[in-house]
């Protein structure tokens, strides 16, 4: 399995665009810096700044879209050039192949959130009214690591859809709709979409200030939602890869 993951990364080495997408981790920390510098005030509370730089749109919109595109890219080339036949001949287990891609997404998501973490801390230092407090920095790092891991599981349905398609347009369009769905459905039912369930897990115990939930927080239910979607996704990927002979 480790070898497969290593091969996936070696393949990605040639795709500069994947690493360029990592730069989008800087968008929200930079925008938050501008907003807190010129429009709002954090009143000395770094969590107010971190909420915008790392937990706001980065987690609900930017990262799901980036990971959706990455998932599609990971599957697209091999599907397009019919490379899968050669992989099956090696032989590579179909589910191992799928999970190797998943681990690439997972590692990428964690790295993305680490870039967000570092840039958030750097931009918060540039703001004069926020003092560098190691307790808050550690809190941010913990939350970034946690959300990086969870979001990889949240994006698994997109990876599964990408395995069923030879093209990239449908998975990419579904990614956009999927991110928007998680964002909009939150006030109605937080336990229907994995994206909104992730919000419940990340913001548990009131960790993210100002995030108001319309329903009672139920962490096991949020995990169950993600688990159910992931199980269906793995099943779908298994069927789709099984048909590719």
């Amino acid at each position: 399995m480790l070898k497969l993951i290593q091969i996936e990364f070696l393949k990605l080495r040639r795709r500069k665009f994947v690493w360029m997408m990592m730069l989008s981790a800087l968008i929200m920390p930079f925008l938050a810096f501008l907003l807190f510098k010129y429009a709002w005030t954090a009143d000395g509370d770094p969590r107010q700044f971190y909420k915008w730089s790392a937990f706001g749109f980065t987690l609900w919109i930017i990262l799901p879209v980036v990971l959706g595109i990455l998932s599609t890219m990971l599957m697209y080339n091999e599907n397009q050039y019919d490379m899968l036949k050669q992989l099956w001949i090696v032989p590579v287990s179909k589910m191992r192949y799928f999970f190797s891609k998943f681990f690439v997404v997972l590692i990428y998501a964690v790295c993305f959130m680490m870039v967000t973490f570092i840039s958030s801390v750097m931009f918060s230092v540039l703001l004069e009214d926020i003092a560098l407090d190691w307790g808050n920095v550690l809190f941010l790092m913990k939350k970034c690591l946690e959300s990086g891991v969870i979001i990889a599981f949240v994006i698994l349905p997109i990876l599964a859809i990408a395995t069923t398609q030879k093209g990239y347009i449908l998975p990419v369009s579904i990614t956009l709709v999927y991110a928007l769905l998680g964002f909009i459905i939150m006030p109605i039912n937080m336990y229907l979409s994995p994206v909104s369930s992730m919000a419940v897990i990340v913001a548990r115990n009131g960790d993210i200030p100002g995030l108001v939930f319309t329903q009672a927080m139920n962490i096991p239910l949020a995990f169950l939602c993600i688990l159910v979607w992931d199980m269906i996704s793995v099943l779908l990927a298994n069927i789709a890869l099984g048909k590719r002979n």
Binding site: I169, S173, V177, L180, I184, I185, I188
Partner: peptide, 24 residues
């Protein structure tokens, strides 16, 4: 190309999601 149908699907889905958002 399938693209047109996928775009139509995306548009219908967006409309449906916004409608759901309006039910709050």
């Amino acid at each position: 190309s399938k693209f047109v149908w996928i775009a139509v699907f995306a548009t219908v889905m967006v409309a449906a999601i916004i409608f759901i958002g309006g039910l709050v």
